[in-house]
């Protein structure tokens, strides 16, 4: 069974890029455009990894991480946050909320895959 990844980003461009890269590497990808929608998907799907943006409407990434870590089937699912290079403090807040690691935007496809494999190897 292919590993299943949920990518959460309000930017279609980013979702497309993440999704395209992951699908090309054989992952199954689910997409959500904000934290709230992500929780909805997580309620119905078991995923192996969550990749989330931080700045999103309705529910931001940090809150999403906190909610996922608060309990439920994904309490110990790896979560990667997408952050810009300037976002050191965001890395920290994401990490504090319970994120497993981060990916710096913009990312090369290879870098994304290597980070994904780091926290969630086949």
């Amino acid at each position: 069974m292919p590993r299943k990844i949920l990518t959460v980003d309000d930017s279609r461009t980013m979702r497309d890029m993440v999704s395209y890269t992951l699908k090309g590497a054989g992952f199954e990808v689910l997409e959500a455009e904000d934290g709230l929608k992500a929780l909805g998907i997580l309620a119905n799907h078991r995923v192996d990894l969550i990749i989330t943006d931080i700045n999103m409407p309705n529910m931001d990434g940090v809150t999403l991480v906190k909610r996922v870590r608060a309990g439920g089937p994904h309490v110990s699912t790896p979560i990667l946050i997408l952050t810009t290079e300037s976002g050191d403090d965001r890395k920290a807040s994401g990490k504090a909320a319970g994120a497993t690691g981060w990916i710096v935007k913009p990312f090369a496809p290879e870098k994304l895959l290597s980070v994904v494999n780091k926290v969630c190897p086949a």
Partner: peptide, 12 residues
């Protein structure tokens, strides 16, 4: 968020 999203894409 709008500025941030554009920035992220622009970086890519």
């Amino acid at each position: 968020r709008a500025v941030h999203s554009v920035k992220a894409g622009a970086g890519a």
